[in-house]
Design a protein around this nucleic acid. Structure first.
Lengths: 205, 205
DNA sequence: AGTTTTAAGGTACTCCAAGTACCCTATTTG
DNA sequence: CAAATAGGGTACTTGGAGTACCTTAAAACT
């Protein structure tokens, strides 16, 4: 939470450019955090930033674009634990993902995904958290496991590496659960992910 | 497309109950098909059904609920081909799914999913097409393959059976593509699905 | 048949928020 | 110091969801 209206508009020099943009984004992020995307209104963002809607619309074409931009500053990075074995690492990562999507921030992310509904330019900006970039920790975990001989080398592709995460996201999208029960995570890991990535008999065909 | 306003309101006996409900749903489905969920307005549905908003709100609590109800009558069922081998069956099924999600109906489904955004009661009603019911054709295909000795028996669970479909849906949700390129489907099948379901070395742990 | 109850029809309204228009003024640029 | 740029203030339009309320047709009841 930053300061509310940044003091009385009288006693402050008029902000421009980057400074104002900062203030708007910051206000929008605060509003997002408090009320979610559904509760993000342009009037309130303007008021909170101590400016008006014009200044916002000069920078972002619409509410959604502002929402996406503001979301990016709520974001934290995740790093994979090292539990010493593949199953432990994978479960840990999946639990992190589950916690994130269950968190208020995760709820906002889901709202934005829903609102973007296929607008790829905007979805791209959200991908840091769930798209290709999110493959990195999974690949890290698999690399460690590969060194220990636990996985097949073919598993080291983004498509394969992120399967567990994708399946988990599916729970949220399709079932609308607020949080996925832990046994679902375990099931995903044991029934799908481990059998998939572990060293396996050479494919016929 | 059914008739537009069902004749002049004067020359018709006043409809009630089921008959009216039918007319509303039918009008809503037509509107959905023409304008998508985004373009579905209560006023227009009412006008098209030759009634008024009250009659609608007496039956559905809000626009989304009406949209979901109307969607269900746009829906067609899919049946798995039998190409004779597992890879062919799976690819065929996945291509069907891709075509569906790329179709206008698929676009509507995606809009509704987005608008429902976690309202489980409504999501449930959409699951016929993408949730557990959709597992049935995959299980059928796997059963056939099991009989031929192509897959491991552990693969016959909904979670495992639907992995390919879930991965494909993910492409739509995360990337916002209007349609998934065929090589993505092939990749999903060859890199993930087949290695997963095929008879495999017993898991160590 | 007449009476009561139920639900449809008609219409007008409130409410809310997005996006726009305009004009005035402070700041920067040159 | 002038011109150009961009912020501030404010009021407005638009559009659609949801509501209120009254009138009237059709059922249900007796």
């Amino acid at each position: 939470m930053t300061e509310d209206a940044a003091g009385s508009p009288a006693g402050r020099t008029r902000r421009r450019g980057a400074a104002l943009e900062e203030a708007i984004l910051s206000a929008a992020a605060d509003e997002l955090a408090e009320a979610g995307y559904a509760g993000l209104t342009m009037d309130r963002v303007a008021a909170r930033a101590g400016t008006n809607k014009n200044a916002i619309y000069r920078r972002w074409p619409n509410r959604l674009a502002l929402g996406v931009a503001a979301y990016r500053r709520l974001t934290t990075t995740i790093s994979p634990d090292d539990t010493g074995d593949l199953r432990g690492d994978v479960l840990a990562l999946l639990r992190q993902a589950n916690r994130y999507w269950s968190s208020p921030q995760g709820a906002i992310l889901r709202e934005l995904f829903a609102a973007a509904g296929g607008a790829s330019e905007l979805l791209e900006q959200l991908q840091d958290r769930s798209g290709d970039d999110a493959a990195a920790p999974w690949l890290t975990v698999l690399e460690r496991a590969l060194a220990r001989g636990e996985v097949a080398p073919e598993a080291l592709t983004p498509r394969v590496a992120t399967v567990a995460m994708v399946l988990l996201r599916n729970e949220f999208v399709v079932r609308g659960v607020p949080t996925a029960p832990d046994d679902v995570l375990v099931e995903i890991v044991d029934e799908v992910y481990l059998p998939l990535v572990r060293r396996r008999a050479p494919a016929r065909n």
